Simulated scan of single mutants.
Amino acid sequence: MRIGELARRTGASARALRYYEECGLLTPGRASSGYREYDDRAVVTVRRVRVLLAAGLSTSVIAEILPCVVDDTVVLAGRCPELLDGLARERARITADVEARLAARDILDSLVGRPLDTATA
């Protein structure tokens, strides 16, 4: 399939797909015309990449994870245990970022005179 079809099937833009290729996350073949050609496995790969990006991981981390995925999910399932410490660090980084953003929101709330409402926080 060509890039437009892969974009349609995955919801990723053609520009994003070219970026994934540039990062080494996706490897299309080339037709004699020079057009990118993707097989059905590319659909699964793009979906995995999008899930991992949504989890806050960088493309360089995702490039390390993709070879360790053993089925149609993104669960590592015991493969590549050397990645687990790095993923724990990524989780801690994301948690710290969330906490910092919540603190910033609390400061903004106090600046506008809005009382802290922990029920909707």
Score class of each variant (00 low, 15 high):
112 V>H: 06
40 D>N: 10
76 L>Y: 03
15 R>A: 05
41 R>M: 11
24 G>D: 00
92 A>W: 07
87 L>A: 07
32 S>L: 14
103 A>C: 09
76 L>G: 05
6 L>V: 01
19 Y>E: 05
35 Y>M: 07
35 Y>D: 09
49 V>C: 10
15 R>T: 07
115 P>Y: 01
47 R>F: 08
97 D>R: 15
68 C>K: 00
40 D>P: 07
98 V>G: 10
14 A>K: 12
56 G>H: 11
105 R>I: 13
85 D>T: 14
114 R>S: 05
2 R>W: 06
111 L>P: 06
69 V>D: 04
12 A>S: 07
69 V>F: 07
104 A>M: 11
116 L>A: 02
31 A>R: 14
31 A>I: 05
75 V>H: 15
9 R>A: 02
36 R>T: 00
77 A>C: 11
42 A>Y: 04
20 Y>V: 07
19 Y>C: 06
13 S>Y: 05
22 E>L: 12
18 R>T: 04
58 S>M: 00
47 R>N: 08
30 R>A: 00
20 Y>A: 06
103 A>R: 14
23 C>K: 15
22 E>R: 12
95 T>H: 14
4 G>W: 01
12 A>L: 02
81 P>I: 06
81 P>V: 10
93 R>V: 13
91 R>T: 11
104 A>E: 15
49 V>A: 03
89 R>Y: 13
110 S>E: 03
72 D>R: 09
30 R>G: 00
102 L>V: 09
31 A>K: 10
46 V>W: 04
46 V>P: 01
60 S>R: 14
78 G>E: 00
48 R>H: 08
94 I>T: 10
63 A>M: 09
3 I>D: 00
10 T>M: 08
59 T>M: 12
48 R>I: 02
16 A>L: 01
82 E>V: 11
45 T>P: 03
57 L>G: 01
25 L>R: 07
84 L>M: 12
32 S>W: 12
107 I>Q: 15
28 P>F: 01
76 L>E: 02
120 T>K: 11
46 V>C: 01
104 A>R: 13
66 L>T: 04
16 A>V: 03
74 V>W: 00
52 L>Q: 10
53 L>Q: 13
10 T>H: 11
58 S>A: 07
21 E>T: 08
91 R>A: 15
120 T>R: 14
14 A>S: 10
52 L>C: 13
82 E>T: 08
19 Y>M: 08
97 D>W: 09
50 R>K: 06
8 R>V: 14
99 E>V: 07
108 L>F: 11
28 P>D: 03
55 A>I: 08
10 T>W: 06
56 G>A: 09
54 A>M: 09
91 R>H: 13
4 G>K: 04
29 G>R: 15
105 R>H: 13
97 D>E: 13
99 E>D: 12
105 R>M: 14
92 A>P: 02
55 A>S: 11
70 V>Y: 03
4 G>F: 04
39 D>I: 07
116 L>M: 03
86 G>Q: 07
77 A>H: 12
99 E>H: 10
55 A>M: 14
5 E>S: 09
62 I>Q: 06
109 D>T: 13
54 A>R: 10
48 R>M: 01
50 R>V: 08
64 E>F: 05
